[in-house]
């Protein structure tokens, strides 16, 4: 029974391969990167927890319930778009990424220019929040949601797009590099974006929660995992769309504020020290 719960409901070789590759590359990079920059155990645990959570909602029995219960599906996307990527970004895997970047042969660099350009475009301060919220609205648009739950390929596209965009967004928000000396996004802009993305999510979540009629009837078409009242399913799903993402935004704002204050402290310390030193 326990193994049944851990085995994927709908095995996806690509998904398993990608998660395994990320895990192996992370652990190898962790061992080989310079000791001075190597992430501490808390950061490693954060990264692995984030990765495991994302894998868990995609490739265990959880996915079965996510396919046939609206509120579990919302929980799945909460993990894929918010919680998992948040932990991965918070763990700051930059030293590991930098180690692997150094391993890339120099002549490969020109070939990576399109990737770099695409990355820069996606991480633009206007594009990133638009994409982050836009994807939630797109996949929750009733006709699109209907097709995504019915069509196996589209279902995988939906889940992967949520995960990839989640990682991009939270990395932009929690990038540990100093915005004053690197290209990382300024703290003020990050706070503004985090608050701005929360608003449409709150509106969407609340409108699902308070909708009188059934908004997502695909769960009637596909059958529910157990005979739960459709209205209850929709209500709980709406609350999961509404409250936890808003809390994630607040948590993000707090983290950025803390960094901003630390930065101001060190900046004023240096300013005070300069005349005497």
């Amino acid at each position: 029974m326990a193994t049944q719960l851990l085995l994927p409901y709908d095995p996806s070789p690509v998904t398993i391969a990608v998660f395994a590759a990320v895990l192996v590359l992370y652990l190898l990079g962790l061992r080989r990167c310079p000791a001075a920059t190597r992430p501490g155990s808390l950061r490693v645990v954060a990264f692995l927890t984030g990765l495991l959570l994302c894998y868990g909602v995609m490739q265990t029995r959880f996915d079965y319930y996510a396919q046939y219960m609206f509120f579990v599906h919302r929980g799945q996307h909460l993990v894929l778009h918010h919680l998992g990527p948040f932990l991965i970004a918070l763990s700051n895997p930059l030293p590991v990424l930098q180690y692997w970047r150094r391993q890339l042969p120099g002549q490969l660099m020109p070939w990576l220019t399109p990737v770099r350009l695409l990355y820069r475009c996606l991480q633009n301060a206007w594009v990133a929040p638009f994409l982050f919220v836009g994807l939630i609205f797109f996949w929750l648009w009733p006709p699109v949601h209907f097709n995504a739950m019915l069509d196996r390929d589209l279902y995988w596209v939906m889940n992967w797009s949520m995960l990839v965009d989640g990682v991009l967004f939270w990395w932009l928000m929690l990038d540990p590099r100093n915005p004053y000396t690197t290209t990382a996004l300024g703290y003020g802009k990050r706070i503004l974006i985090l608050v701005l993305v929360a608003v449409p999510q709150i509106i969407l979540g609340a409108s699902i929660t308070f909708a009188r009629q059934s908004v997502y009837d695909v769960y009637e078409v596909c059958g529910r995992a157990w005979p739960m009242a459709p209205a209850t399913d929709q209500l709980v799903g709406g609350i999961i769309t509404w409250i936890p993402p808003a809390m994630m935004s607040i948590l993000g704002v707090l983290l950025v504020l803390r960094r901003l204050m630390n930065h101001n402290d060190t900046a004023s310390d240096t300013a005070q020290m300069t005349p005497t030193g």
């Binding site: 836009g134 609205f137 797109f138 009733p142 409108s207 909708a211 009629q213």
Partner: peptide, 13 residues
Amino acid sequence: NPLSLRITRSVTV
């Protein structure tokens, strides 16, 4: 359905 109408009008989609 008010939700679907609202989303249809939204520039995002």
